[in-house]
């Protein structure tokens, strides 16, 4: 950690890769995030859950500055996010995101989808980027689709491509914004399997998801949000077996009774 941060924040744990301090965000007059404090250690797997509209997507979208925030502070790997374009790009080069609706580039084939950022942002040669792309596609199990276009793949395959694209820039942090919510039920497991593999490899992950099985299996911490604030935060076992707040109890009842 750089001296700058230590001076700003005072004493703190040595390995926090993400630090969010009293973050507030409004959409117009709507108070979307209320005084969020969150620290994430390097290599930690965080699952964020909560009812829709609770601000969980907004929170992780603030981390790579897809959403601006009005108050508070986010420090990602020693860089404090602000309107400064340089800092935003620096953070984005270390943070990758997987979206609910995949957001692959439909005019580029799969390999080009993966190698776009390495070539243009990270100055890799075409050959390097392509080789790495094929390796990653192999890892998510769709190497044979490399020359196809996104719309020619199934939802599950597209999301695995999106994960590979996110990995292509060798990020330190991966953000998952409801990666399985738009998938047909039979395709969810193929995406979750890839995510479980990733989690084992020690990359820092923040996942917004309703997949409680996934959360139980890999999360180091689970965060429950409601109405723009963090309501409860715990390790997986106590989180499910011993929820404290009424809102979390209600939420777990609803989601686990399915």
């Amino acid at each position: 950690m750089s001296e700058l941060i230590n001076k700003d924040i005072g004493e703190k744990d040595c390995c926090d890769i993400i630090e969010i301090n009293s973050l507030n965000k409004w959409y117009g007059d709507f108070h979307a995030l209320k005084d969020i404090d969150l620290k994430v250690k390097e290599g930690e797997i965080i699952v964020v859950c909560g009812p829709s509209g609770s601000g969980k997507s907004t929170l992780i979208r603030c981390v790579n500055f897809l959403e601006k925030f009005q108050e508070g502070q986010i420090i990602v790997d020693g860089v404090e996010l602000s309107d400064d374009v340089k800092k935003i790009r620096q953070v984005r080069s270390e943070v990758s995101m997987v979206f609910q609706h995949f957001n692959l580039f439909p005019h580029l084939n799969i390999v080009d989808n993966l190698s776009l950022a390495p070539i243009w942002v990270h100055n890799e040669t075409k050959q390097e980027a392509r080789a790495k792309a094929l390796k990653l596609l192999d890892r998510v199990g769709i190497k044979d689709q490399a020359e196809k276009y996104p719309n020619q793949l199934s939802g599950g395959q597209q999301q695995r491509v999106a994960i590979a694209r996110a990995l292509c820039t060798s990020p330190k942090i991966m953000l998952f914004d409801e990666p399985t919510s738009a998938l047909d039920p039979e395709m969810i497991s193929e995406v979750l399997d890839v995510m479980v593999e990733l989690a084992k490899e020690g990359i820092t992950m923040i996942c917004v998801t309703h997949e409680m099985g996934f959360a139980k299996k890999v999360a180091d911490r689970i965060i429950f949000m409601d109405e723009g604030q963090i309501v409860e935060e715990n390790k997986p076992d106590p989180f499910f077996s011993n929820p404290e707040s009424d809102r979390l109890k209600l939420f777990l009842d609803q989601i686990l009774s399915q």
């Binding site: 790579n64 897809l66 790009r89 609706h101 957001n103 776009l116 243009w120 942002v121 996110a166 820039t169």
Partner: peptide
């Protein structure tokens, strides 16, 4: 063009 395309391009770090 869906908003997601702008966001994806931003997220991978394109200027």
């Amino acid at each position: 063009i869906p908003k997601g395309q702008y966001e994806a391009a931003d997220a991978v770090g394109l200027n």
